[in-house]
Amino acid sequence: MLELADIQVRYGATQAVRGASLTVGKGEIVSLLGANGAGKTTLVSAAVGIIPVAGGTIRFEGRDITRLPAEAVVGVGLTLCPEGRRVFADLTVRENLILGAATRRDRAGVEADIDRFFGMFPILRDRAGTEAKTLSGGEQQMLAIARALMCRPRLLMLDEPSLGLAPRIVEQIFELLVTLKQDGMTILLVEQNATEALMISDRAYVMANGRIVHGGKAADLIGSQDVTDAYLGAAAHG
């Protein structure tokens, strides 16, 4: 469904991603693991067009979207729930969701989806009219996921949804991802939290120093020395 082939990304003179390739198949949850600074966020940001790629191709459902700007990527059915949640702090919860559906024209459908997410996250219904900045970290993450889903993507990318959250909340969010998968959603999950991510994933890739250093079935990677090495190796490099 999504194919990244030999992606390269540069920030000025430094190369953040040096030829990374990965695929995500329909209906899968795929994890992209790696230590801080491995290039994971850069890679997914490049995939949705926030950062320009210096080389390689991005295909989604067979279509080449390498040069597509960020605002057009949503239209093809791919969306990113960014790192650090990035909810619109000054907008209300409800306005955040409406803006998530900015590309849709079916008002009734949008309202129905908002209702559906309020059903899934009752706390959001209770806070519908308050500014998003008043929510707790976990609530903001739920809002961010719901907002990303409002555009009805066929593939959802999540960048570090567990960042800075309590273990109980992380568990809830991962359960939600499993539910989404059961409903037919395809998910690419970027995580530092390797063990938990692997538990819910079908496959996983490990990234270090801007390269994909490992890939395989999630079950095989749990507790694997390769994964541990990737983290330690990256740590040793600085």
Binding site: I50, A70, F88, A89, D90, L91, L99, G100, A102, T103
Partner: peptide, 24 residues
């Protein structure tokens, strides 16, 4: 209006607004 919401949101975080499919 959606464009109005987008303008308010863009005042803080333009990148994420573009992620929502709103044309800068």
């Amino acid at each position: 209006t959606t464009i109005g919401l987008a303008m308010r949101a863009a005042a803080r975080d333009f990148t994420t607004v573009r992620l929502m499919g709103v044309r800068a």
